[in-house]
Amino acid sequence: MGEAPRVQGGLQAEIMTVLWRIGAGTVEQVRGGLPEGSGSAYTTVQTVLNRLAERGLVVRTRERNVIVYQPAMSEAEYVDSALAATLDSASKSARRLALARLVGRMGAGELDELRELARGLDKGEPGPA
């Protein structure tokens, strides 16, 4: 998979989080899933969704008389792409230090899960989305 366009700004991130959680939705469904008190108007959410679609992060489909939006990739695929792009642009020492810090913040249970996931990926298993 190539590098995914980056989410830009807080509202785009919140909208993508909602879409990853609900899978697909109309403007009103996405708006309803935003954090309490975000106060984003219908037209603002619609504009952001359309911009995300133009950039390839969201897919639009017409279902009868409404537009339904869904993520173009899973959250895991997006994070993988963003991390890979960031790490690829870093020096070897910076890359190792960043990865060591990420792993260092994990609890023992998470590390065991990560090892198991890595073994599965080595065997060609797809892993969770």
Rank of each mutant, 00 (worst) to 15 (best):
residue 95 R to V: 06
residue 79 V to H: 11
residue 120 G to V: 07
residue 87 L to R: 03
residue 25 G to I: 05
residue 49 L to E: 02
residue 15 I to K: 09
residue 35 P to C: 02
residue 15 I to D: 12
residue 18 V to S: 03
residue 50 N to S: 10
residue 8 Q to N: 12
residue 116 E to F: 02
residue 121 L to Y: 05
residue 93 S to I: 10
residue 29 Q to I: 00
residue 105 R to F: 05
residue 30 V to Q: 02
residue 10 G to A: 10
residue 123 K to A: 15
residue 93 S to K: 13
residue 34 L to A: 04
residue 13 A to E: 15
residue 85 A to M: 02
residue 114 L to C: 03
residue 98 A to Y: 05
residue 8 Q to I: 14
residue 121 L to P: 01
residue 4 A to R: 14
residue 39 G to F: 04
residue 86 T to S: 10
residue 113 E to A: 14
residue 104 G to A: 12
residue 119 R to A: 15
residue 105 R to S: 15
residue 63 E to M: 09
residue 32 G to D: 10
residue 34 L to N: 01
residue 99 L to Q: 05
residue 47 T to D: 07
residue 46 Q to G: 10
residue 3 E to G: 13
residue 97 L to W: 01
residue 36 E to C: 00
residue 5 P to M: 06
residue 75 E to M: 13
residue 60 R to I: 06
residue 34 L to F: 04
residue 54 E to I: 00
residue 115 R to K: 11
residue 106 M to D: 02
residue 110 E to N: 10
residue 1 M to S: 11
residue 1 M to Q: 08
residue 49 L to H: 07
residue 68 V to D: 03
residue 45 V to N: 00
residue 80 D to E: 14
residue 13 A to Y: 07
residue 73 M to A: 06
residue 2 G to A: 09
residue 105 R to H: 08
residue 19 L to F: 07
residue 129 A to D: 10
residue 94 A to L: 15
residue 17 T to R: 13
residue 7 V to C: 08
residue 56 G to K: 11
residue 54 E to L: 10
residue 46 Q to V: 00
residue 42 Y to S: 00
residue 27 V to C: 10
residue 8 Q to P: 00
residue 83 L to G: 05
residue 16 M to V: 06
residue 25 G to P: 07
residue 51 R to H: 08
residue 116 E to Q: 14
residue 65 N to D: 15
residue 75 E to Y: 03
residue 83 L to C: 13
residue 39 G to D: 02
residue 81 S to G: 12
residue 16 M to Y: 09
residue 59 V to N: 07
residue 108 A to P: 07
residue 101 R to I: 11
residue 16 M to N: 11
residue 59 V to I: 13
residue 91 S to L: 06
residue 21 R to Y: 03
residue 23 G to D: 05
residue 119 R to M: 09
residue 23 G to P: 07
residue 94 A to Y: 06
residue 60 R to P: 08
residue 121 L to T: 04
residue 67 I to N: 08
residue 49 L to F: 01
residue 92 K to F: 07
residue 51 R to S: 11
residue 73 M to E: 12
residue 85 A to P: 07
residue 101 R to N: 12
residue 111 L to Y: 01
residue 5 P to V: 03
residue 42 Y to R: 12
residue 87 L to K: 08
residue 23 G to I: 04
residue 53 A to N: 05
residue 93 S to N: 07
residue 64 R to P: 00
residue 32 G to M: 04
residue 98 A to C: 06
residue 90 A to L: 15
residue 73 M to D: 01
residue 22 I to P: 05
residue 108 A to W: 05
residue 14 E to W: 04
residue 125 E to V: 08
residue 86 T to D: 09
residue 2 G to H: 04
residue 55 R to D: 09
residue 46 Q to R: 15
residue 77 E to K: 13
residue 95 R to S: 05
residue 107 G to T: 15
residue 10 G to S: 13
residue 65 N to T: 13
residue 4 A to E: 10
residue 70 Q to G: 12
residue 108 A to R: 15
residue 47 T to N: 09
residue 128 P to D: 10
